[in-house]
Design a protein around this nucleic acid. Sequence first.
DNA 1: GTGCTGACACAGG
DNA 2: ACCTGTGCCAGCA
Length: 116
Amino acid sequence: MDELPEYAERVLEVAERIPPGRVMTYGDVAEWLGEGGPRQVGRVMALYGGAVPWWRVVRSDGVLLPGHELRALDRYREEGTPLREASRAAQGHLPRLDMKRARWDGAGARSDEAHI
DNA sequence: GTGCTGACACAGG
DNA sequence: ACCTGTGCCAGCA
């Protein structure tokens, strides 16, 4: 069963490399791979994301994934991912990620590709 | 081929 | 915080 298109495989691999407590945006993943675009990454995640830590791949504005907000929030609290609580005016809405602190650029992911 | 849709991004208002 | 338009790229009817 082989199965997954190579591009999807690469996207999933990057998702797996994101350390706990950190996140990468769809655009970051695409840029890191040097291929495809944010929408392609989003599509791969929608189709095969269930096999990897999907909650670590997010939108650039830090909004939680529609339909999985609670599940994601649970993971973030568990991993200690930086969140921004909803402001007074937006009370009732769920918190969003603190992208400034949570965003991971992928630095260091390349240096140790020794074990594949 | 044509047009809409999507787990996107960015600039404006 | 909200909504809108534009750019982007691939899949699908």
